[in-house]
């Protein structure tokens, strides 16, 4: 078991805290089958892989992959980048990644955690490992994107409202819990490199098997497979991680 990055500095009133879904991503990314797949995909002496986590939140997943890059990707010359629509999360995640990297001592290099929507500000064909723990809970409405998050001068009520809105963005997924995930899936063929691979977390209500089939039908030779799951018995929130990659 690789150590889980510390997130004690993360303010749970406005940033999504590490939860069962985050831990499933950690377990999946460090599993024997995924480390073997990734190490075969990114052999040492090839150009540095760029790891992008979309919607980093607390930063626990990106911090884990970066700090344990040597064990997961078989190399520590890895560049880590994050995006989030929540500016508090951007700051907290950068701190989480730096803390975990200094503890491991052999981690990859954090570039930045930028404020942004999904992978929309990334150069086409640049991302080698994309990770997304989306807002996957089915909800009647999808919260609006923040345009600018004001830091100061808010009344306590306004601040509470803003923080609730920021938190809702981390879980509320709209129809089938898939509205945000579908927008990310649309970006994948453009943003992933030729050797790129994406890991997307889904819950049962997202109909993961249908999602896998859809991806397998994308033009240009794509494959998808469920490579990790949890909560198989009683929990209604059965989670899984789908790996998406180009086969040709």
């Amino acid at each position: 078991m690789l150590p889980t990055p510390s997130t004690s500095h993360v303010d749970p009133s406005r940033i999504y805290e590490p939860a069962e879904d985050s831990y499933l991503l950690l377990d999946t990314l460090s599993s024997g089958s995924e480390t073997a797949f990734l190490q075969q995909r990114f052999p040492p002496e090839t150009p540095c892989p760029l790891v992008l986590e979309v919607g980093t939140g607390s930063g626990v997943v990106l911090a884990f992959v970066n700090a344990h890059a040597k064990r997961i990707l078989g190399r520590s010359d890895v560049a880590a980048l994050g995006t989030d629509v929540n500016s508090f999360a951007c700051k907290a995640a950068a701190q989480t990644v730096k803390l975990a990297a200094s503890e491991s001592g052999i981690g990859g290099a954090l570039l930045d955690v930028v404020l942004g929507d999904l992978a929309s500000s990334l150069i086409p064909g640049s991302v080698d490992v994309l990770i997304f723990n989306p807002p996957y809970v089915p909800t009647e409405e999808l919260p609006t994107q923040p345009e600018n998050v004001a830091d100061e001068g808010l009344s306590r009520d306004a601040e509470f409202e803003r923080d609730s809105h920021l938190l809702s963005l981390s879980y509320a997924g709209g129809v089938d819990g898939m509205e945000t995930t579908n927008r990310l899936l649309e970006q994948i063929p453009q943003v992933l490199s030729r050797r790129g691979v994406a890991y997307v977390l889904l819950c049962k209500q997202n109909k993961p098997r249908e999602v896998v089939q859809q991806i397998q039908g994308w033009p240009g030779g794509w494959n998808a497979e469920i490579v990790g799951s949890s909560g198989k018995q009683a929990g209604w929130e059965k989670l899984c991680v789908v790996r998406i990659w180009r086969v040709s």
């Binding site: 930045d112 929507d117 600018n148």
Partner: peptide, 14 residues
């Protein structure tokens, strides 16, 4: 700002 770039677009540009 504070070392963080803001790539969020105003709604009319999304």
């Amino acid at each position: 700002k504070e070392g963080i770039a803001n790539f969020l677009l105003p709604s009319h540009l999304v």
